[in-house]
């Protein structure tokens, strides 16, 4: 049960074949105050690297990509009701959606926490 990160600043936490997805704390700090999220509905098929959700601050709208492929089983309704949770709890209660994993090997290419930290430091 380790957390993995993408270069596009999503995190994914896998438990069994269920993956929970959100955006990184670094990403939320760059976005500023989040005012709106649009999450995928349950049942939608997501493909790794493709648009899955939208997160908006007042002056920017950003697409969130699926870090792994799979079927959406749940979206975080609490986040829709209170989008500021992206800012206050990006990597915990501010998760975006859960998916049923299709191909666990897709995780291999993602970074672990230490690698992601280094990546952020180097590129920003």
């Amino acid at each position: 049960m380790t957390k993995k990160f993408t270069k596009d600043h999503e995190w994914v936490l896998v438990e069994g074949d269920i993956a929970t997805v959100g955006v990184s704390d670094f990403a939320q700090s760059q976005l500023g105050d989040v005012v709106f999220v649009e999450l995928p509905e349950a049942g939608r098929e997501l493909e790794q690297g493709k648009e899955a959700a939208v997160v908006e601050s007042v002056k920017a709208a950003s697409d969130v990509y699926a870090p792994v492929s799979g079927t959406v089983i749940e979206a975080n309704q609490a986040l829709v009701d209170d989008p500021s949770m992206v800012n206050s709890a990006a990597e915990t209660d501010g998760w975006f959606f859960k998916i049923q994993l299709k191909d666990a090997s897709e995780l291999d290419a993602l970074m672990d926490e230490a690698a992601y930290k280094a990546f952020v430091e180097e590129s920003h």
Binding site: F36, E56, V58, K59, A60, A61
Partner: peptide, 13 residues
Amino acid sequence: TLSTREQHIRREK
């Protein structure tokens, strides 16, 4: 407000 719908932020979307 709700400007993220608009061209100056959302551009081609």
